[in-house]
């Protein structure tokens, strides 16, 4: 999920940094410039790993600063398409399930990539996997906020985000006039437009989704508050059946 990217840049060291060692000053400057930022088509920059080479520093007419061309390696978060990551559910909305890794929040599992069949529970504001039981009934598996979730990265979307233009008139109107839920949806949409790096994920495979779904030992404890015990027992049996079927 992390890669090392080799980058080249000309770093300007202002005169007030001249008391530092050149390498130190450059390390700081690179980190100041890149840490916690998304580089287009590269990924989320985390931290400087090492400096590969420094060229001679030059000064330019009319500027007291020194300019140095640097080749360096930076730790970048960019999971490969198809890889499996584990995050936590940040929120659920009509658009799908939003997942966070702590340092990276822009992960969305769209409704089409949830376990099938799933439905959105308006009252709880949560997605529910309607796990089919053998007798035709179904067992509701809720995707609650904060639950650890395993997902597959299916797509990455980079968007050029700067400079930020004036806010769009129509989306503002929508959020002021529409009902509360619509406003929330509109505002998330609005922020999403500005998101430079987004990951679209999927959990529609067996083994993916909330960890407790597949962890038989924790099953009863996890489902406890919403459902009766017999329900759980039934479900557990059923999952054994499903496991056999999968293999």
């Amino acid at each position: 999920m992390f890669v090392l990217a080799e980058l080249k840049d000309t770093i300007r060291i202002a005169p007030d940094q001249f008391h530092l060692k050149l390498v130190e000053a450059i390390r700081d400057e690179i980190n100041r410039k890149l840490a916690n930022k998304v580089l287009l088509n590269l990924g989320l920059c985390i931290a400087l790993k090492d400096i590969v080479s420094l060229k001679d520093s030059i000064i330019l007419p009319g500027d007291g600063a020194s300019h140095t061309e640097v080749l360096f390696r930076y730790i970048v978060f960019r999971p490969t398409i198809g890889s499996i990551l584990t995050g936590k559910i940040r929120s659920c909305s009509r658009e799908g399930v939003h997942v966070t890794l702590g340092f990276f929040d822009d992960i969305l599992i769209p409704p089409s990539a949830l376990q099938h069949p799933s439905r959105f529970e308006e009252a709880e504001q949560a997605w529910v996997w309607e796990y089919p039981l053998e007798d035709g009934a179904k067992h509701d598996l809720f995707m609650d906020i904060g639950e650890p979730i395993k997902f597959r990265v299916s797509r990455e979307i980079f968007e050029e985000s700067s400079p930020i233009g004036p806010p769009k008139a129509d989306s503002q109107q929508a959020s002021s006039s529409a009902a509360a839920t619509a406003a929330v949806a509109a505002s998330t949409q609005q922020t999403e437009v500005k998101t430079p790096y987004r990951i679209v994920a999927a959990i529609n495979e067996s083994g993916l989704g909330v960890l407790s779904w597949w962890d038989q030992q924790n099953q009863v404890a996890e489902d406890g508050d919403e459902n009766e015990d017999e329900d759980n027992a039934e479900y557990e049996n059923d999952e054994d059946g499903e496991g056999a079927y999968e293999e």
Partner: peptide, 21 residues
């Protein structure tokens, strides 16, 4: 800023943790 090699190598989570520490 010039990207000379977007994926010089892959890093395991452990390596990232070590460098960050």
């Amino acid at each position: 800023m010039e990207i000379s090699n977007p994926c010089f190598s892959v890093l395991s989570n452990y390596e990232v943790m070590e460098s960050l520490k």
